[in-house]
């Protein structure tokens, strides 16, 4: 009950700050920018590889079927507007090129179709550009969903350091509440706010990109991740003497986290990349079906990290040398 009262008071404090509300609005700009970035990247890839209209006359049905799979070309029934006219007769291929700039691409298309004929390919329904699907699922959606977590760490850190600066933290300690309860009371409103943002971005993303799966499980995972990041923020801000110091620690922490998430590991250590929170978000949000063995490690790793960082934070908060200013 006391925890909820503290959480309620913190929540009101956060909402009364114009700066935080503007930060939320800033995120809309960032989210829209990120989605456009994905579209831009996919468009660049498409522009480079797209050849255009190709006319084919082939006595090899398999070869024709393979060419139909290739996204870089569009098979037409009239040779007049075709970039290349391909004639396949009794195993010999002759090509008439109408634009020399596409010769290498056409050669690659023919080779791919010809050599991939050894494999029997099933059907795939056409839809969005595969590059766009991949970049959305594996990079941009996790980035958008991690944004509220990163932004909220600052709010939480501000709230604790301000208490220290105004000397109200000592008054808060005199209230009959355990230090753990104080941490929880501080974290709850930030989690609620971050979740509201996460849900808003999921709603917005679902409109632009309708392939987001397991949303309740995804939100649960993000709560666990938040517990880890926010407990760490409590620990940093308890250690820091001023807002500047706590901001510095947070910036360094977030930088380290960002680099670990987005910088590739050497090939032999690439499995480590799967353990980043982004790995969990990718698995949960992009797979239609899930295996428990795939999902559980993420919850175990981040659940354990949350518990450890929470224990560290509460231990630090119970030591006077960290809670007094200076």
């Amino acid at each position: 009950m006391r925890v909820l009262t503290l959480a309620h008071k913190e929540f009101k404090d956060i909402l009364s700050e114009r700066v935080y509300i503007m930060t939320l609005l800033l995120q809309i700009f960032v989210v829209v920018g990120i989605v456009f970035l994905g579209m831009f990247y996919a468009q660049i890839q498409y522009s480079i590889t797209y050849v255009g209209n190709i006319y084919v006359e082939s006595d090899d049905h398999q070869f024709l079927k393979q060419l139909q799979r290739d996204e870089r070309i569009h098979l037409v029934s009239n040779p007049d507007r075709a970039v290349a006219v391909i004639i396949v007769e009794q195993g010999t291929i002759s090509v008439e090129m109408r634009d020399v700039r596409f010769t290498n691409d056409v050669e690659d298309i023919i080779n791919r179709a010809y050599t991939n004929m050894r494999v029997t390919w099933g059907t795939v329904s056409r839809g969005l550009n595969p590059v766009f699907i991949e970049i959305m699922n594996s990079l941009l959606i996790p980035l958008v969903l991690m944004l509220p977590v990163f932004f909220s760490m600052n709010i939480l850190s501000d709230s604790i350091v301000k208490e220290k600066e105004r000397k109200t933290l000592e008054i808060l300690f005199s209230v009959p509440m355990r230090r753990e309860e104080i941490i929880i009371g501080k974290i709850i409103p930030v989690v609620v706010l971050a979740l509201a943002q996460v849900i808003a971005w999921i709603g917005l993303l679902s409109v632009i990109y309708p392939f987001l799966y397991h949303i309740p499980l995804l939100i649960s995972f993000l709560i666990v991740v938040m517990a880890f990041f926010f407990s760490s923020a409590v620990a940093f801000s308890t250690y820091a003497g001023t807002v500047r110091e706590s901001n510095l620690f947070l910036i360094l922490f977030m930088m380290a986290a960002t680099f670990l998430i987005f910088i590739p590991f050497p090939k032999d250590l690439s499995f480590l990349g799967r353990l980043s929170p982004v790995g969990g978000i990718v698995v949960l949000s992009s797979n239609q079906g899930l295996l428990l063995t795939e999902v559980l490690p993420y919850f175990i790793v981040y659940g354990s990290l949350s518990v450890i960082s929470f224990l560290i934070a509460s231990r630090m908060l119970s030591k006077d040398e960290y809670t007094r200013l200076g």
């Binding site: 991949e134 970049i135 699922n137 594996s138 990079l139 996790p142 998430i261 987005f262 910088i263 590739p264 590991f265 690439s270 499995f271 990349g273 799967r274 980043s276 982004v278 790995g279 990718v282 698995v283 992009s286």
Partner: peptide
């Protein structure tokens, strides 16, 4: 090119 976040995607 494989994005680092695309591991096991």
């Amino acid at each position: 090119i494989v994005l680092p976040t695309s591991t096991s995607y």
